[in-house]
């Protein structure tokens, strides 16, 4: 009797201890409908003239330095650029497309998702969706694992592979500092044709649809970013199909954190049930043998 109680305490104790140990890793996401009054941006691709003043303003506002080719040089349109280019140091890029004889320019940068993949990927919480709307990055805690790059469906975050001591994650932060100071992001301020509009996301969505309804022949019936990847802070309206402008068309409308939510929900279940299952099997298996050895000890 005494022995089995000791066994019980031993097993029970380890069960409790192990469950507690595991709980730190137990994690869950929850449904999130977005911070109220969060800001966003609306890019109207029918208005953009490819002047690249947004790029210049962005580099200036974020102290990114000046590139080798000047911002007036249109030869950069020969290739499709990505938002971050190592030797330029840029958070955004304007690319040129020829669609059915029409020249269309598209600005690329972080989409500032409502529920970002990168934020749910970040194991130290360096990337965050701020209540103001921008997706921010905290240099002080980033460990450089680059899971955010693997996870982002828009291929936005970039890493400084040439830096050994201070590699940063580079991407557009929607001028978070300026927004909290009450100023408009630099690119929106610099745009001479109001192709970039800054404002509360819900208002921008209404504005986007009112433009489409106002001139149904000029626009296609799609606000890119309204529902993509669960909705993004940066919205686009266009006169030509988004698929012809290198927009990702296969990402669906599910917010990315949902993809790992089910998996994370089994963490607690496993931590609680395995000790019971395997501890139980052990006891069924070993009780006889234990009493046997105990008997031996008593004889001695």
């Amino acid at each position: 009797m005494k022995m089995s109680r000791r066994d019980f305490v031993k097993i029970g104790g380890s069960v409790v201890a192990l469950s507690l140990m595991g709980n730190t890793a137990a994690a869950g996401t929850h449904s999130f409908t977005g911070y109220p009054d969060r800001y966003g941006m609306l890019s109207d691709l029918t208005r953009c003239i490819g002047c690249r003043r947004c790029e210049a303003a962005c580099n200036k506002a974020n102290n990114l330095g000046t590139p080798k080719t000047s911002f007036e040089d249109t030869s950069v349109f020969e290739e499709k650029r990505r938002p971050y280019v190592a030797d330029v140091g840029s958070y955004t890029a304007v690319n040129r497309f020829e669609v059915d004889g029409k020249t269309v320019y598209r600005k690329v940068q972080c989409m500032h998702c409502e529920e970002p993949a990168c934020v749910s990927a970040c194991l130290v919480g360096a990337l965050q969706k701020s209540p103001e709307g921008p997706v921010t990055w905290n240099e002080k805690v980033c460990i450089g694992c680059r899971y955010c790059i693997t996870a982002c469906p828009f291929y936005v975050p970039a890493f400084e592979y040439s830096s050994a001591f201070d590699p940063k994650i580079q991407k557009c932060f929607m001028c978070h500092q300026r927004i909290t100071n009450g100023t408009v992001p630099a690119c929106a301020e610099a745009c001479p044709v109001e192709a970039i509009t800054f404002g509360k996301r819900d208002k921008l969505l209404k504005l986007a649809w009112s433009r489409i309804w106002g001139e149904p022949d000029k626009y296609i019936d799609h606000v890119y970013g309204e529902r993509e990847a669960g909705g993004t802070g940066w919205l686009y309206v266009s006169g030509v199909p988004f698929s012809k402008l290198d927009f990702q068309m296969d990402i669906g409308t599910t917010a990315y954190p949902e993809l790992t939510k089910d998996f994370l929900s089994i963490v607690n279940l496993t931590l609680v049930s395995w000790p019971a299952v395997f501890g139980g099997i052990y006891l069924m298996n070993h009780k006889d043998k234990k009493t046997h050895t105990e008997e031996k000890e008593v004889k001695k």
Binding site: A27, V119, I143, P167
Partner: peptide
């Protein structure tokens, strides 16, 4: 890792519990 000297950060300094990598 880009900043391997911070490998212990997810353990004591800064938590991202919604990340599968946090669990790993």
């Amino acid at each position: 890792l880009g900043r391997p000297w911070r490998i212990y950060y997810p353990m004591i300094l800064s938590f991202g519990p919604a990340s599968v990598m946090f669990l790993v």
